[in-house]
């Protein structure tokens, strides 16, 4: 892929259904290089499905996804080898950090990080080890390199998972609720790592309900409801003056009180899971 472009991720007209349940009903989203986009929305609104469609862990039914010039027209679900290769190409450019870490339990922290470089990118072992140690140091876990995941705390696991994603030297990192399976006191170490990553100019798409993180770090907040993007905007605008009643009531539930720009600016820390506010039945 010769030319660099401004738009690492471009999604248009994306539809996805599970049986009779239409989960994504036409999503258009462009993410520019270096941009941090936070996706919020009630449980079941399709946030996870959307970011899984970007790296084809879910196959979209219609629409198209382009990641760094690799474009895959959807709808035709033929398993042609060329298409499979394109999907793998996209996956190496759009790395993923999962809600439940999904570290490989039979590999050490360092082993997890160097697995992709060695077995997918074909990097020589010595080079991969150096890269792996550098990345573990970057997430503050240089001393845990030889530990198996079972010996790490949740926050440490997630930071190793972030290092593993970075080891692919991706163009964009996709995060699906990276803190929501952690105890509250462990959120901050993961968020700090993500802040640093954003500070280094990484393109990030982050599903999260960490309002403070969104406010500080996001360039844009996208609100999904019922399989569509209901509202999007810069965080100050999104949190300070949401247009839709739907968004206002969601933010009230997230906050547990009235939301206004002052509270946000004063740094009230809201971090909630999405448990309390499910969509109605979205059909």
């Amino acid at each position: 892929m010769g030319h660099r472009e401004d738009c690492p991720v471009s999604i248009s007209g994306l539809h996805k259904r599970f049986g009779s349940l239409e989960v994504l009903k036409g999503i258009d989203l462009e993410v520019r290089r270096g941009e941090v986009v936070v996706i919020m929305g009630p449980s079941g609104s399709g946030k996870t499905t959307l970011i899984r469609c970007i790296n084809f862990l879910e196959e979209p039914d219609a629409g198209c996804v382009r990641v760094c010039g690799v474009e895959i027209p959807c709808g035709g679900k033929t398993k042609r080898p060329a298409r499979t290769r394109q999907i793998r190409e996209i996956r190496t450019r759009a790395a993923m950090v999962f809600q439940h870490f999904n570290l490989f339990p039979h590999m050490t922290a360092l082993g997890n990080v160097i697995e992709g470089p060695i077995s997918v990118r074909g990097m020589p072992k010595a080079e991969a080890l150096a890269l792996g140690e550098r990345l573990l140091a970057r997430v503050g876990l240089a001393d845990k390199r030889d530990q198996y995941p079972s010996r790490l705390s949740g926050g440490q696991k997630q930071r190793v998972a972030i290092a593993r994603a970075l080891a692919m030297e991706p163009e964009v990192v996709l995060f699906d609720e990276p803190t929501s399976s952690l105890d509250p006191e462990l959120h901050e170490e993961v968020l700090q790592t993500m802040r640093a990553l954003a500070g280094d100019g990484m393109t990030m798409i982050v599903v999260t309900h960490e309002v403070r993180f969104a406010y500080d770090v996001a360039d844009r907040v996208v609100f999904m409801a019922g399989g569509v993007i209901l509202e999007e905007g810069p965080p100050a605008e999104f949190f300070g003056n949401p247009r839709h009643a739907r968004v206002r009531s969601f933010l009230r539930l997230v906050d547990g009180g009235e939301v206004d720009a002052d509270t946000v600016a004063n740094g009230a820390l809201w971090a909630v899971g999405s448990a309390g506010f499910s969509e109605g039945s979205p059909v």
């Binding site: 862990l57 793998r88 190496t92 999962f98 570290l103 490989f104 997918v120």
Partner: peptide, 9 residues
């Protein structure tokens, strides 16, 4: 999914 997301066949 983690393996596939690294681009493994």
């Amino acid at each position: 999914e983690a393996a596939y997301s690294l681009g493994m066949p």
